[in-house]
Design a protein around this nucleic acid. Structure first.
Length: 502
RNA sequence: GGCCCCUUAGUCUAGUGGUAAGGACGCAUGGUUCUCAGCCAUGAAUCAGGGGUUCGACUCCCCUAGGGGCUACCA
């Protein structure tokens, strides 16, 4: 581990006298390309930005980087916005929430980029390029074959006015390229990685305005971050080397630099970057399976970050209180559903019906909703949510409470054999229960045990099998109580009948 | 090919020259219980490799390997 300048960076931040004020003025942004549902990587980046903003009382800005017309659409933006909102990552400025630095969709800022490109052209920091995609591709291939870096060769850089006019007249595509000055380098200190340095020559003159008039990512992002007064650019590590070009834009345009924090990527179980093709997990899927958002947020926060103390189950408020970029790790992490499930189950257990019943209600089978009162359903929820990472599990987990004779597993059927008398005894004992409560039910079960001379498994298992059709499940007395006297006795009589026929 | 980032158990991580390398998920065993779950206890499992620097390296430096990113008129 590069003990790098995390210290130096932290020390530097702390030693700035205006620190208090600076931190209050924190402005961060999440700038996704609206390509559909929010995946876990984007969600984690958004979360870190949001936590940082909330921690410092700053602003969280949402900006849509939709200059790639092929991949972006309004519908996909809606999907992403919904996922973000569902996670509770509310934005202070952005689409559907106007602020002083809008518009917040790059597609609506085209004129701004065009003007800055114009300015760079006038200052001769950029030039028009008339190369066709085919020419570019050919030159690129040649350079690679020759073992040279595949950078743009700058052939349009020194075109005369006449030459330019000629190419325009020929109707060639015209893009604008930024002039990369040779022999220099950019050095900046990343909050997570420490001092990072890139030589200018690692990129060639790059396109800032495409021939279709739309800006490229690095140009638009730099301008927007500057204009939107972003103080901390917190984004995925895949953008670390893009910082070079953005820094060149900042300098050419006379903008000051923000602070940068490049957070490690989230990888798939094969240790390579998550991708849609490989079915990268997305927030919508988890949401539809009924994961509580606290569980997801909690788990995501711990991917690449950890608080100073041991606690792993934190509420959103606690996360906000504890979060700091200094404690973000620098190595990539792998998304682990097992652990997400554990974290999530912790939240549902702690929250119980009081917190999650409403949210879980849609996943409770209609059959049970018809049969039980609301308070009974809540009880059922509390019983089965001892280990419930997501609520679509309720389908299976609530079968024990379905009224009437259950479907039987093979093992359960064996339990019925020759136990006709036992079931009748249970039916009688439950029938004579005065008050239908757990105490009386337990008493009745014991009484049957005494009368029939059986105990332990021999006593409970047949009852469980007869009632639920399975050999395992929640506490029997609770099942009996909630299902009610009538249902229990009826089901037992049915079981007695079945047993008699075996 | 060039430039850059990363590397502690299967996984998430703590750790900033002297520790028995700590915690969590998962796994295994035992206890509790009618069973499952839960809970409690116990256990197996880690500093990628090699060189330095140092009295002493997981920690600092270099190299190698592996992974990743950028090198696009994708973001």
């Amino acid at each position: 581990m590069n003990t790098r300048s995390r210290d130096r960076v932290a020390g530097k931040t702390l030693s700035i006298s205006g620190k208090e004020r600076r931190m209050q003025d924190v402005r961060v942004r999440f700038a996704p390309s609206p390509t559909g549902f929010l995946h876990v990587g984007g969600a984690r980046t958004a979360l870190f930005n949001w936590l940082f903003a909330r921690r410092h009382g700053g602003a969280f800005i949402l900006r849509m980087e939709n200059t790639d017309i092929e991949r972006s659409s309004g519908e996909r933006e809606d999907d992403m916005l919904e996922d973000l909102a569902w996670l509770g990552l509310d934005w202070d400025e952005g689409p559907r929430k106007d602020g002083d630095f809008g518009p917040y969709r790059q597609s609506e800022r085209i004129e701004i980029y065009r003007q800055y490109a114009e300015q760079l052209l006038e200052e001769e920091k950029a030039y028009p390029c008339f190369c066709t995609p085919e020419e570019l591709e050919r030159k690129r291939k040649e350079r690679i074959e020759e073992g040279r870096p595949p950078r743009y060769d700058g052939s349009c850089r020194n075109l005369t006015g006449k030459e330019r006019a000629k190419r325009r007249a020929d109707g060639r595509p015209e893009s604008i390229r930024f002039i990369v000055t040779e022999g220099e380098k950019k050095r900046f200190s990343d909050i997570i990685r420490g001092e990072v340095e890139f030589p200018h020559h690692m990129v060639g003159d790059f396109v800032i305005l495409r021939s279709n008039g739309l800006p490229t990512y690095n140009f638009a992002a730099a301008i927007d971050d500057a204009l939107m007064k972003i103080t901390h650019v917190v984004r995925g590590e895949e953008h670390l080397s893009n910082t070079l070009r953005q820094l060149m834009i900042y300098d050419a345009l006379g903008f000051g630099w923000p602070a940068f924090a490049h957070i490690p990527l989230i990888l798939g179980s094969d240790r390579t970057k998550l991708s849609k093709r490989k079915g990268a997990p997305n927030i919508r899927d988890f949401r539809e399976r009924g994961y509580p958002r606290e569980g997801i947020v909690n788990y995501l926060a711990f991917l690449g970050w950890s608080p100073p103390d041991r606690d792993e189950i934190l509420s959103v408020e606690e996360l906000v209180r504890e979060f700091s970029l200094e404690r973000v790790s620098e190595s990539p992490s792998i998304f682990d559903v097992e652990k997400l499930n554990w974290v999530s189950a912790q939240h549902t257990r702690r929250g119980g019906a009081a917190r999650y019943f409403e949210e879980a209600l849609p996943y409770i089978p209609g059959e049970l909703k018809d049969r039980y009162r609301q308070d009974e359903l809540r009880e059922i929820f509390d019983i089965v949510s001892e280990n419930m990472p997501f609520f679509s599990r309720l389908m299976e987990e609530t079968v024990f409470f379905r009224p009437g004779p259950p479907g039987m597993t093979g093992e359960a059927v064996q339990m019925l054999k020759r136990r006709e008398g036992l079931f009748s005894a249970f039916a009688d004992a439950f029938g004579s229960c005065g008050e239908w409560n757990t105490e009386c039910i337990r008493g009745a079960i014991k009484e049957v045990g005494k009368r029939c001379g059986v105990k332990g498994k021999e006593l409970y298992m047949p009852l469980r099998a007869a009632l639920t059709g399975a050999l395992h499940g929640p506490d029997l007395a609770s099942i009996v109580r909630i299902r009610g006297k009538k249902d229990v006795i009826g089901t037992l009589k049915h079981a007695a009948g079945e047993a008699a026929r075996m």
